[in-house]
Design a protein around this nucleic acid. Structure first.
Length: 695
DNA sequence: TTGAGATGTCATGGT
DNA sequence: TTACCATGACATCTC
């Protein structure tokens, strides 16, 4: 509407003057109603870009060959098919259909609209009523006729091509900042120089009038009106009615597919969440500690007696050293000093370190358990300790690159997420990166995969996803993620009803949308119409102005061999060749930029998911670490009590207990426990007492 | 009027 | 060398 106002307020008067100077009588008042499209659209005639041709209507009803190559629904169609395949492969989802709702709508309007069917299809023998569907009127001559304009093709001296050219030149002047005065002056100059005379008379000049494109600096060769192309017309433009029929052949509006897509997304995401939960639950499994081989005490039975070893576990976990502090026992209380000395005295594994350290902890002399030396390094399985230490290293000192890569592999295997993955299963449009590289090859072979399209964003998809976000609390990144998609229009060159859709860089909007989607759609429609009219339409206008005899889609998407062959078929000027190459370069780069940005979003989204996954895993491992530490502490206490119990029950040849100050039990590498005199540091090999004892 | 977001385009480097 | 792609940077536009 803004563009309409702009044209009405600024350009319409000038254009009226221009047309009046050329002898064309236009009833511009007929364009004033608010529901009419901008004037330039009316004059330029419809392209599939602006016409509500409802190409999306075939989506979901066929194999997609009815989808317009640049329709916003094409990517969604592919996405829907792929997701539907995934979901069906899971054999657990049933995709509900809203077909019944559509039928009810049809039933209500059945009496009033005799020719209309459910909205999922339109009879081919009944011409569609574009105006009644709320879409923009046909911008070709047909549209002019419907709007009551008197400048109909064939009824005026000016052909549609001339009107296009006039409009293009006028708009280029506006783009260059030429004011109204300048434009009027130029009009007068044109009138004086009779520049338009050949056009009006339809006489073909010997030399086509050359004009310099102020925007591109290129020379525009203008051809007479009688020859609409001025060049070998290898692609004759069809008549309006034929084109319209062809374009409107696949008219099956399909909101159901979009709704299905939302549901499929929800199910797919719930599945992925379930997988993530499984990963977490597996990671949270407690780490069971075991002693293997079992603690073994080798005590010399010849020199020691063992009067009844109590295995009362309650006593084992009593954090005191009552037996040692008994009054009748000659064993004095041990101090930390003794413990240190003992540990430093014996080079091999010393249980006294554990014993006395823990004892001191229990008596309150030593506070932190982390300061004590690892007393179980000889008792616990080394593999277990390695595992614990690795976890601590990972948790407290960060992941090393190797660990990160391992974790990455695990994450990839678990959730399918990858930092560098361009084929993330999360991606609604999957393998666009590889597809972009295969764009030309696919177009050359005229075969394509459903996910390999390269092209433009799907605005209706975005709208649907936004709607689904609001309704289903979708994660917003998914709409952002799905905002850009890829399509390759060249892959649909063989489709007959798309053959004439060559200048479409815009997106179709679904013609029959729910009422609640209308504001969003109108907003996006206005935005895209204005934006794409300037951006994507620029090259189209240039191509038309330069009389490029083939479509921009071909220019952009043809393989280089076919492209060169196409160029060789025509006698093109240098300016035309330059423009064609620019269009090709810009078009390819445009798609590349879209793919690049999509990859960025994919990467960001994947990283976001990965961070969440790592956070969950970190929490799980922290819990596991705490459990391990508690278990380790319990084992320390148990070993301590076992030591005390065994040591207190050892007797020498005289039946007296050994003094803890003079003897200590040591755990050797072969699993035996020996009793060693503390002052016999150089006599470690001597075993005064040895007692085999299975625990 | 300003800022954010989207998109197109150009330049550059890699393949 | 040429064509193509990826991407950073910038411009433009809309909201």
């Amino acid at each position: 509407m803004l563009s309409l106002k702009k044209y009405l307020t600024e350009g319409l008067i000038q254009f009226t003057i221009l047309l009046s100077l050329m002898g064309v009588r236009l009833d511009l008042d007929s364009y004033l109603p608010s529901h009419l499209p901008p004037l330039h659209e009316i004059i330029l005639g419809p392209t599939s870009a602006y016409t509500q041709t409802q190409f999306h209507s075939l989506r979901g009803t066929s194999d997609g060959y009815g989808v317009h190559p640049k329709s916003v629904d094409l990517d969604q169609f592919f996405t829907s098919r792929r997701l539907l395949g995934c979901v069906r492969a899971l054999d657990r989802l049933t995709v509900p259909s809203t077909e019944v709702d559509a039928w009810l709508v049809h039933r209500e309007t059945e009496g009033s609209v005799s020719s209309a069917q459910t909205g999922s299809s339109r009879p081919s023998d009944s011409p569609p009523d574009l105006n009644s569907s709320g879409s923009e009127p046909n911008r070709d001559g047909q549209g002019l006729e419907e709007l009551g304009a008197t400048a109909q093709p064939g009824s005026s001296d000016l052909s549609k091509e001339d009107i296009d050219l006039i409009d293009i030149l006028w708009r280029q002047d506006i783009d260059l900042g030429v004011g109204r005065e300048d434009f009027e002056n130029r009009q007068q100059q044109n009138e004086n120089e009779d520049v338009w005379e050949p056009l009006r008379d339809g006489a073909e000049p010997l030399e086509p009038a050359l004009q310099v494109d102020g925007e591109t600096g290129e020379s525009i060769r203008r051809f007479p009106a009688s020859n609409t192309s001025g060049l070998p017309d290898a692609e004759p433009r069809p008549e309006v009615s034929d084109r319209t029929d062809l374009l409107l052949s696949p008219l099956i509006p399909d909101m159901r597919a979009s709704l299905d897509l939302e549901e499929q997304w929800q199910d797919l995401m719930s599945l992925m969440d379930m997988q993530a939960m499984e990963v977490n639950s597996s990671a949270e499994d407690p780490l069971y500690l075991s002693l293997d081989p079992p603690l073994q005490l080798d005590v010399n039975l010849d020199q020691a007696s063992l009067p009844g070893c109590s295995h009362n576990t309650s006593s084992l976990f009593t954090p005191t050293l009552e037996p040692f502090s008994a009054s009748e026992s000659p064993v004095p209380q041990l101090s930390s000093h003794n413990s240190t000395d003992l540990n430093s005295t014996f080079g091999f594994t010393n249980l006294t370190g554990l014993l006395f350290q823990s004892q001191l902890n229990n008596t309150g002399n030593i506070t932190s358990p982390t300061t004590m030396p690892d007393p179980l390094c000889g008792l616990l399985d080394e593999a277990l300790l390695d595992e614990i230490s690795l976890m601590e290293l990972a948790l407290e000192e960060g992941f090393s690159q190797v660990q990160t890569s391992q974790l990455q592999e695990e994450l990839d295997s678990d959730s399918g997420l990858s930092l560098d993955s361009h084929h993330s299963p999360l991606s609604p449009s999957g393998s666009e990166s590889s597809s972009s590289s295969s764009c030309s090859s696919s177009s050359s072979s005229s075969s394509f995969s459903e996910e390999g399209a390269v092209g433009y964003s799907s605005d209706s998809e975005m709208i649907e996803l936004e709607e689904s976000e609001e309704a289903n609390d979708y994660q917003p990144q998914y709409s952002k993620f799905c905002r850009m998609s890829s399509q390759d229009p060249s892959r649909f060159r063989h489709l007959p009803f798309l053959e004439h859709v060559g200048h479409n860089h815009t997106y179709n909007m679904a013609p029959e949308e729910p009422e609640e989607m209308q504001p969003i759609m109108e907003r996006n429609s206005r935005r895209q119409a204005g934006f794409l009219d300037r951006q994507a339409g620029r090259d189209e206008q240039r191509a038309r102005a330069m009389k490029i005899p083939f479509s921009n889609d071909k220019i952009i998407n043809l393989p280089v061999e076919e492209f060169n062959d196409l160029l060789a078929k025509y006698q093109l000027s240098e300016a035309q060749l330059c423009l064609i190459r620019d269009i090709r370069r810009r078009g390819k780069n445009k798609m590349a930029a879209q793919n690049c940005r999509k990859r960025k979003l994919d990467t960001i989204l994947n990283l976001e998911q990965e961070v969440k996954h790592l956070n969950r895993e970190r929490s799980s491992q922290l819990r596991e670490k705490g459990e391990n530490l508690r278990s380790l502490q319990r084992m320390k206490q148990e070993v301590e009590h076992l030591y005390q119990e065994v040591f207190s029950q050892l007797r020498d040849q005289n039946g007296r207990p050994y003094s803890p100050q003079q003897y200590a039990l040591h755990y050797t590498s072969n699993g035996s426990v020996i009793l060693t005199p503390r002052n016999a540091g150089g006599q470690q090999g001597r075993r005064p007492e040895r007692k085999d004892r299975r625990k």
